[in-house]
């Protein structure tokens, strides 16, 4: 079985099958580039991902392994309305996978999935963040994202007035 060595920003190496790695658009491109530039067809590609740390890379690879037999979603699917296929593609395993995660980790996963071009993972993680915003009050969002209001004086009221001006008919 052909393998590829994926190295995280903090130096942790993950040895995965090329079949699995190629489910990521970015890793697929890197493997193909390596094949073209390398004289030895048997050489093991080594890909360094400088923007993703080991903990997050392990989660991405874990998700890819679980979904290795799923059909690959095209990157531009539902491009017109901008929506992903999170609801369609989200399984019980996905829900259990994301449930114990801190929102900060989920946000890092979004960036990692976007960088590695893993559309399925990007859709479900974005859906999770969206669910923390949609239908929530301002205070609930602040609590979920661990934020504090830093508006001074009537700045917050001013922003609310701008919002009202935008949406009222």
């Amino acid at each position: 079985m052909a393998l590829v060595r994926v190295i995280s920003s903090d130096g942790a190496a993950f040895l995965v099958s090329q079949r699995l790695a190629k489910r990521s658009g970015k890793l697929k491109t890197e493997i193909e580039t390596f094949r073209k530039s390398s004289d030895n067809s048997e050489a093991q590609p080594e890909i360094r991902i400088v923007t993703i740390r080991a903990e997050i890379l392990r989660l991405v690879l874990q998700w890819l392994q679980q979904h290795q037999n799923d059909p690959v979603l095209p990157a531009n699917q539902n491009e017109q309305d901008g929506r992903g296929d999170a609801e369609m593609g989200q399984s019980q395993w996905d829900r259990d996978f994301l449930a114990p995660m801190d929102l900060g980790i989920v946000m890092e996963l979004i960036l990692a999935a976007n960088h590695l071009e893993v559309k399925g993972l990007l859709d479900i993680t974005c859906k999770l963040v969206e669910s923390k915003i949609t239908g929530r009050t301002v205070d609930e969002i602040r609590t979920a994202f661990k934020l504090k209001s830093d508006f001074k004086g009537n700045e917050e009221e001013q922003t609310r007035l701008e919002n009202r001006w935008c949406v009222e008919n």
């Binding site: 830093d150 508006f151 700045e155 609310r160």
Partner: peptide, 9 residues
């Protein structure tokens, strides 16, 4: 738009 009232950033 609602998110604009969370914090300055």
């Amino acid at each position: 738009l609602n998110c604009r009232t969370i914090c300055k950033s």
